[in-house]
Design a binder for these strands. Structure first.
Lengths: 358, 358
DNA sequence: CTGAAAGCGCTAACAT
DNA sequence: ATGTTAGCGCTTTCAG
């Protein structure tokens, strides 16, 4: 591995000239620059990151801290972020925390220690002091999907509340009066915003809202849904707060042989593969998943280049209500809803279909 | 950030004693060790990776090179690998190549340059000289899902051929004689093995095999399937070679209002969310996705500790034929197939459901 | 068993 | 505009 010194010798100049050419730190004469570039080319010099970091420079590494990589939403987002970061010359250090805050703290610590240039995080807790510490020590941070309370970091989020409100309104417009909202019981931003949106729509329509939280703290989906469905006035429509809950709910409906949309209507937050495969196809709120990852990475890169530009603002991306059949709407054309007629494929294929194979 | 020198001062010993205690490189007297450990504890010393790497040591970084992170199969595998590596004290750099070999080469180069200790790869091409180079320069490599031709690296793969053969046999046992095999047209190991397994079963049963390759090189799934279905002797059963192709195929069947299993039977390679949600539920070959990632990471860590142990062997993991309804079998109990009755949930939930929320 | 010194490749700070 | 020097934190080498 040739070093700066080797380049300097070959070029017949001092080491600092080489360093300055490589980093564009200061003016060098055209003549020197030419010689240096030629020497670099000739001996195939590549800067040594370890030495740079040792000297106290920031590395060209971006840390990605996500709750889970096996979740399609998060994986797609991470994929886009990684791709964008790579294109900008960064390597991506990925850590999945498994939704555990102690793991999040631990990896954050290690990342700071190893001088990452910036971090892209989907935080899994409320106590964000570890991120605050990172921000204070000069590491740029951008959060995705959820704002980072008490930390000076931009956030890229979606219009959860508005979208949930629209979804509930759509069900109301279909004549439903008893609409239940099923979400997980985790106290995270997105869940609370979506519940707030649902509640807002119900209130406006002077309808009673019923929120059914499921999870480790609140109890089993099957029990809760059974209870609601067995009541004197069972719901005729469901709004589910995420693709995971949609999956579980759809299983329950299938088990109880409840048909959509007649016996029960349904709208889900998050689009998912099965949504277009089922009969009826599921009406969903689609998030700009890849955009979230891509824009977050772009934003982070900009902030790394110019740390002063951090404002701590929230940037909100728009979601899209994708009307299919589970809400009671007619499919546009038989079974061809959501189909790209030109390519004879489901339109808006998941990212993974963009590979060369398909 | 306290350094080794600081520790040495506090402990009242030389730097080398500290270094030896930290790394366990050589014997130190119990007395010295005690003093050093106390000093480390007291000032909160953490070794500096950059300095270690600069001195020519291997880092504690593992590189993950995957074709795509948004694909559920690959994402789940990456997630498990990352988790395992973290537990073993390694940091994971992740790169998604987008199935592009030039990107694979590029990220491999960067990782070698930055002294990763090892790489976990799902290669996307045949020309593996960049990996061969890495292996030669002392970086341990383990490949997943596909063997690494011409490189001395272990591979963790599944019994593709056997499983595909079993799937085809299962359809044959159901009385089907015209079974078509639909796969992508990408010349990768898994595809070829699965086709070989299908062919083997058909040959044994003295049945004519029909392989339908779809993709950028071969053409549209809709056209190909339409052609096959419109022939004088249309197939009565389909074996699809991957979850992606299953998704597209199921869309086609839905569009043509073909009912399973009566009008057309189907078995798919790879389990996927929609498989248990559809009616009929889809019979699939389930791969041990997380195990693949976990075991690969464990293997890699072992090889990093003992580079001589690399044999270049292939380790084959078993898949499982999950009988559901799309092949013509009766569901075990009404709609409750694949349901964990105790927890009232679909059993074998995807990894992401293991979070604290559900 | 322990310590002192040299140097990995780079850049900030200071000379020229 | 360019060169020289010192030192980031660690480990290898060699001397005690």
């Amino acid at each position: 591995m040739p070093s700066l010194l080797d380049v300097a010798k070959v070029a017949g100049v001092g080491v600092m000239s080489v360093s300055r050419v490589v980093n564009g730190t200061r003016k060098v004469s055209p003549e020197t620059e030419r010689k240096v570039r030629a020497a670099i080319e000739r001996i195939g010099y590549e800067p040594n990151e370890a030495a740079r970091i040792l000297k106290g420079q920031r590395s060209h590494v971006i840390g990605l801290i996500f709750p889970d990589l096996s979740d399609p939403f998060l994986a797609t987002c991470a994929n886009a972020a990684q791709e964008t970061a790579r294109a900008a010359g960064y390597v991506t250090w990925v850590a999945a925390t498994g939704h555990r805050e102690e793991v999040e703290r631990e990896v954050t610590k290690v990342m700071i220690q190893r001088n990452v240039a910036g971090m892209l995080v989907i935080p899994c807790g409320k106590q964000n002091d570890h991120f605050a510490g990172a921000a204070k020590s000069g590491i740029s941070i951008v959060s995705i999907d959820r704002p980072l309370e008490n930390v000076k970091a931009e956030s890229l989020i979606v219009d959860n509340r508005h979208a949930a409100c629209r979804a509930a309104e759509h069900l109301i417009e279909h004549g439903h009066r008893r609409i239940i909202c099923i979400t997980d019981d985790f106290p995270i931003f997105t869940r609370m915003e979506r519940v707030a949106g649902y509640t807002q729509a119900m209130k406006r329509a002077k309808l009673p809202g019923q929120i059914c939280a499921v999870g480790a703290m609140s109890g089993d989906l099957s029990d809760q849904l059974g209870f609601a469905l067995g009541s004197a006035n069972p719901p005729t429509a469901i709004f589910v707060g995420s693709d995971l809950i949609a999956f579980l709910t759809l299983h329950e409906l299938r088990k109880r042989s409840l048909t959509m949309p007649d016996e029960i209507a349904l709208i889900a937050f998050d689009d998912f593969d099965a949504a277009t495969l089922l009969t009826p196809a599921i009406t969903v709120i689609r998030q700009p998943v890849s955009d979230l990852g891509r824009q977050a990475a772009e934003l982070l890169c900009r902030q790394i280049d110019n740390p002063a530009s951090a404002t701590g603002a929230r940037i909100t991306l728009k979601t899209e209500l994708v009307i299919r059949e589970s809400c009671g709407c007619k499919a546009k054309s038989n079974a061809d809803h959501d189909f790209d007629m030109l390519r004879r494929r489901p339109s808006r294929l998941p990212d993974r279909f963009r590979g060369p194979c398909y």
